[in-house]
C-alpha cells in the first residue's frame, strides 16, 4: 500500500516542493553558518510561524503574515547596533508562545499551530511549489554575486566601507533570501523542520570537504539526500514527515563525527613529543650550533 502511495500523483507536488526547498535551505543555511548566524534561522522561523497564525486570526493570507513578521524582525535586526544569541533566544521563545497562544483564539487553532511548528508538507499545493522554485532560482542566481561579498565582510569587516563600496545591496539581497527561505520553509514543511534544514546540512557539509564551493555542494547534497530518505521513510512507515526529516538529518550528523575522527587520527599519528624534548642547557647549546 505504502509503495503505491509513494508514486501517487497526489504526492508529486509535495515531493518536488520539499526537494527544491531542501536545496535552497541548505545553501542559505551554509551562508548563515559561515556568518555564525545559524541560530537566527530558528528565531526567524518561529517568528514567521507567529505571523502566519496571526494572519489566520485576522483572516488574511498566511504567507502575508509570515513575511510581515519575519520582515519586521529583519528590519529591527538591521537597526540594532549589535545582535546576538540572546536576541535569537528571545525570538524563539516569543515565536513558540505566540504561535500556541494565538492558536487558541481560532477554531482548530491548535491544529494550525501544530502544523506550522511541526510541518504540513503533504498539504502543500502548486503555490508552495512555485514559491520554492522562485526561492531556489533566486538563491542560485544571486549566489556567485553574494557569496564573495559575504565572505569578504566576514573576514575583513570594514572592506566595503573602507573602499566606499555599497553594502546595502548585498545585505538587502541576503536578508530577503533568508526571509524567503524561512517563510517558505515554515509554511511548507514547518518551523522546526525548516530550521533543521537550514542548520544541519552545512553543519555536516562543512567538515566533509575542503574549499568553499565544495562545502556548498556538500551541504546541498546532504540536505537533498536526507530529504529524499525522509520523504520515502515517512510514507513507507506512515509517520509524520517533519519529525522524520529532523531525525534523518540528525542521523546525517554521524558523517560529521566519522570525518572528525578520521582527521584526528591523521593529526595525532606519530609521537613527536619526546623527539623534540631537550633539557634547557642542551637546548641552548643546540640553538648556538644551529646555522
Amino acid at each position: 500500500m505504502s509503495e503505491f502511495l509513494l508514486f501517487d500523483p497526489l504526492f508529486r507536488v509535495p515531493f518536488f516542493t520539499g526537494l527544491l526547498l531542501a536545496a535552497a535551505l541548505s545553501l542559505i543555511g551554509a551562508l548563515l553558518r559561515m556568518r555564525d548566524e545559524w541560530l537566527a534561522a530558528l528565531g526567524l522561523s518561529q517568528i514567521a510561524a507567529v505571523g502566519a497564525i496571526a494572519a489566520n486570526v485576522l483572516h488574511l493570507p498566511v504567507l502575508i503574515g509570515a513575511f510581515a513578521a519575519a520582515g519586521a524582525v529583519m528590519v529591527l535586526r538591521a537597526a540594532l547596533p549589535r545582535i546576538g544569541n540572546s536576541h535569537y533566544g528571545l525570538m524563539i521563545l516569543l515565536g513558540w508562545s505566540g504561535t500556541l497562544l494565538l492558536g487558541s483564539y481560532i477554531d482548530h487553532g491548535h491544529v494550525v499551530g501544530e502544523h506550522l511548528l511541526r510541518g504540513q508538507l503533504y498539504f502543500t499545493h502548486t503555490g508552495h511549489l512555485l514559491g520554492a522554485a522562485v526561492l531556489l532560482a533566486f538563491t542560485l542566481g544571486f549566489l556567485p554575486w553574494l557569496s564573495p561579498r559575504l565572505l569578504t565582510a566576514r573576514f575583513f569587516p570594514d572592506y566595503h566601507k573602507a573602499n566606499q563600496l555599497p553594502v546595502m545591496p548585498y545585505r538587502m539581497v541576503f536578508a530577503l533570501l533568508v526571509i524567503g527561505a524561512v517563510v517558505t520553509g515554515t509554511v511548507s514543511i514547518g518551523a522546526f523542520p525548516a530550521f533543521a534544514m537550514l542548520f544541519v546540512p552545512p553543519w555536516v557539509g562543512f567538515v566533509l570537504v575542503n574549499g568553499w564551493t565544495r562545502s556548498l555542494i556538500a551541504s546541498t547534497a546532504v540536505g537533498c539526500a536526507a530529504y529524499i530518505a525522509a520523504f520515502v521513510a515517512a510514507i513507507m512507515l506512515d509517520l509524520p514527515f517533519g519529525p522524520v526529516l529532523t531525525a534523518v538529518l540528525i542521523l546525517c550528523g554521524t558523517l560529521r563525527f566519522v570525518t572528525a575522527l578520521r582527521r584526528r587520527n591523521f593529526q595525532v599519528s606519530g609521537d613527536q613529543s619526546k623527539a623534540n624534548y631537550l633539557p634547557i642547557k642542551e637546548y641552548r647549546a643546540a640553538e648556538k650550533r644551529a646555522p
Partner: peptide, 12 residues
C-alpha cells in the same frame, strides 16, 4: 570553515 588560504587571498 573549510575556506582555503588561496580563497581568502582571492577575496582581496
Amino acid at each position: 570553515l573549510a575556506l582555503m588560504g588561496r580563497e581568502l587571498f582571492a577575496l582581496l
